[in-house]
Nucleic acid binder design. Structure first.
Length: 209
DNA sequence: CGTTCGATGCACT
DNA sequence: GTGCATCGAACGT
């Protein structure tokens, strides 16, 4: 799973990007491009929605119980991918942040599709559904499916491997912060960040006020 | 629009 | 056993 010359090396986010406070990384990941290259081709999209999960004191963070086999990547170096299976059905992808030993990550929740639209449609068309482009990568489980991300990408190094995040200098609109969705505890923290009014943002839209 | 609910695998108690 | 960082179909309004 090594890098090829054309794998966005010059634009890839580097260690110093991920090795910062998680809320800072979360905000700056908006507008960056998540890319996955497989044998089937390249698929990518601009990140439009994320959530931060920060440390063992965050009850919604997988590190809340302390170190385990599953959450080990969270304790690893910044710039790793943390992928896990949720509800037995969906794979969710995170970018590990902050220094090694400090468990935190940013969950990627939605993308605006850019490259490999046909590939994404093929991967998403499980039941003869008709999919709008804006729905292809709307929701954390949907985007991993569209990009072909599975447990195989867990612990992938976003700085070196065939799954990565790059900066194409894309413009983003206003950012909105709101409560994280789909969790029971830790609801108080407004650690979800999205592009205001973007059509690919999942779930309840954070209200701009 | 909205809400409810089943599918499904695995970490953790 | 229990409880999820979900999704989409099916139904109600």
């Amino acid at each position: 799973m090594r890098t090829r010359r054309d794998d966005g090396v010059a634009r890839r986010l580097v260690t110093s990007f991920y090795d910062r406070p998680t809320l800072t990384v979360a905000a700056e990941l908006i507008g960056k491009v998540l890319v996955h290259r497989t044998r089937g081709g390249i698929a990518s999209g601009m990140i439009v929605e994320v959530e931060a999960y920060i440390g063992e004191d965050d009850p919604a963070c997988h590190a809340a119980p302390g170190p385990t086999a599953r959450n080990a990547p969270l304790y690893g170096p910044p710039g790793l991918a943390y992928v896990y299976l949720n509800y037995g059905i969906h794979y969710l992808v995170n970018a590990v942040t902050e220094a090694e030993g400090s468990p935190a990550a940013v969950l990627i929740r939605a993308l605006q599709p850019i490259d490999g639209l046909d590939l994404m449609v093929r991967r998403r068309s499980g039941g003869g559904r008709t999919l709008q482009e804006t729905d292809l990568c709307r929701g954390p489980g949907n985007l991993t499916r569209a990009l072909g991300i599975t447990l195989q990408q867990n612990r992938a190094d976003l700085r070196e491997d065939t799954l990565w995040i790059e900066d194409r200098g894309l413009a983003v609109g206003n950012l909105v912060w709101g409560p994280r969705v789909g969790i029971r505890r830790g609801v108080e923290q407004p650690w979800r960040c999205a592009i205001a009014g973007h059509p690919s943002v999942s779930g309840p839209r954070p209200v701009l006020r």
